[in-house]
Every structure is written in C-alpha cells, then in structure tokens.
Design a protein around this nucleic acid. Structure first.
Lengths: 140, 140
DNA sequence: TCACAAATGCAACAACGATGCATTTAAGAA
DNA sequence: TTCTTAAATGCATCGTTGTTGCATTTGTGA
C-alpha cells in the first residue's frame, strides 16, 4: 500500500535500472514530498551513507529521473523530472519558484514560453529562479 | 595611474564608505576583470584573510556596490552593480550568461523586458541564468 | 594627534561534495 | 534455487566554501 514506493519501483523498472535501497528511498521521498525536496530532508530521511546519497542523486540526475534546483543563498533541492527527460537530455520548460515565507520550492510551468535573445550569443539553456509568495501563503 | 584603484576609491568615497585594504583590492579586481570575477580569482588575488574576504564581499553586496552570480554546478562570481543599486535595494534588469567554452560570466542587459506571470503567486524577484557560447567563442 | 567604531587576522567549526578501495548486493544465467 | 558479475554501498579521508568569536589593528573625523 506504499504508493510512493510502488511509484519508485515502477519508475526504475521502466527505465531499466537496478532497484537499490538508496534509489527507492530517494525517489519515494521526493514523490511523497509534493514539492522539490531539500537536500537536508533527504539526509535526514534516507538511510544510507552520505557518499552513497550523493552518488545516487547524481546517478538519478544522469538518468533523467530527477533534477536539481538551487536557491539563494545556498540550498539544493531535488525534484522529479517529467517523462520528457532521459539520460540523453534534460529539457525543462519550467522555472523554480521559492516562497519567501514557507520556503517551499516548486516547479512551475509557464503558459507563454519565454524567449530570450542576446545578439551575438548562442544560448543553449536558460534557467529561471523566481522568489515571492506562494498561493497558500498569499491567502494568510 | 592605476585606473581601477582610482575607480574603487571614488566609488567608496561616493558612497561614504571606509577605504579599507580589502575593499579597494576587491573593487579594483572586479573592475579590472571586465566580467564577473570568480571567487577563486579573488582568493588568489586579494591579500587578506579568507574570513575578511567573505565579510567584505558581503558588506559590498549589502551596500549595493556589487552582486553575486551563481553558475552550475557550484561556482560563485561577483560583478559590479549599476548606479541604481543601493544598500536599500538591488535592482538588476539583467541576466547572467556563462559561456560553456571560455567559462566567462557576464551580465547581459535585455532590450525586451521579461514578464513572468504565475497564477496565484506574487513574484518579487526573478533571476535568470543562461548558458551558451559567447560572441568571442562563436567566432572561432 | 587622539579616540573610537569598524575592519582585520587568527582559530575553529560546520556543511557540502568528491574519491579510492574493500565489501556487499541486485539481477540475470545456469 | 544457486551462482556469477558488474554495480552499488560503506568507510575513511580530503578539499572547498562559508561562518563566527575574540583579540588586535586601522581608517576617519574631531
């Protein structure tokens, strides 16, 4: 009946990856968190050596299962990727939003695509981080 | 005849700040670099204790003289602010661009302003980081 | 030249992130 | 089910970034 765990197992099977303890724990934790999960939360939750945690996170990123979000001043968050990501390419049509009140970090998809042009530059990737007040905290 | 040093002195005088050794060194170094300067470069260049370097950088940021740019995966750069910044507010109508070839980080001002709207969110600040190939490396 | 607040150097500490190496484990083959 | 093997893990260790407390030094204005 552990929904997040089943999700993690399915996802690993689908991508042809080993179902190791740390992978299952990490993916479950992210799934259950319902927002980008802070590294410290993973550290507290996942039962594994710190080096294993880092290595596994990097593996999952390389495989296109999760991605990283950085916030000011210095925190790292992890979130699930969509189906469009793979070990070949991460393509994220979203930005990362951090609420200055509750500190939650979420992936927000935009209706209008953002085009950025710089004369004489070839832009290959753009990363957008926004800060403000989220819909839950606005209501208060 | 040291232009960058004179610039640093003038800037500090203009803002009513003490002309200390680390401030002058840092501002001169940034001015001379002609791009956002990596922290490691400051570390190698500025003759001061590491803690002084950090404290002074934070002071200059607080006073609105410089600002920080972060790049993937984990580097911090520092650049001059425009006149519009002060100890009260940093307002940056630009993005940070890092060339994947020469690694230089520059502040790039956009002609068309970017508006980002998220339903039910109050956005207070937006930070944009772009990666690609700069005009110098494109030519090669 | 003096006084004082501010800046500095030094020491120590914490967190993040990486790596080498021996051991354990997941998963497919026999 | 058992065996095999590559991959994953734990442990030890290292380096960098960033912070803080405290005694000493320095810049500036009187």
């Amino acid at each position: 009946m552990n929904e997040a765990l089943n999700f993690a197992k399915e996802l690993l099977k689908l991508r042809g990856l080993k179902q190791t303890s740390s992978r299952l724990q990490i993916l479950s934790a992210i799934k259950e968190y319902n927002a980008a999960i802070p590294y410290s939360e993973l550290q507290d939750t996942v039962i594994a050596d710190r080096s294993t945690l880092y290595r596994t996170l990097n593996t999952l990123i390389d495989e296109g299962l999760i991605h990283k979000a950085k916030t000011e001043p210095n925190d790292t968050y992890y979130a699930m990727c969509g189906h469009e990501c793979s070990s070949n390419s991460h393509s994220h049509q979203h930005l990362h939003f951090q609420c200055t009140i509750c500190k939650r970090v979420t992936c927000e998809y935009l209706q209008d695509e953002i085009k950025i042009r710089l004369p004489n530059h070839q832009i290959s990737s753009v990363e957008i981080n926004a800060q403000g007040v989220c819909k839950l905290c606005v209501a208060v």
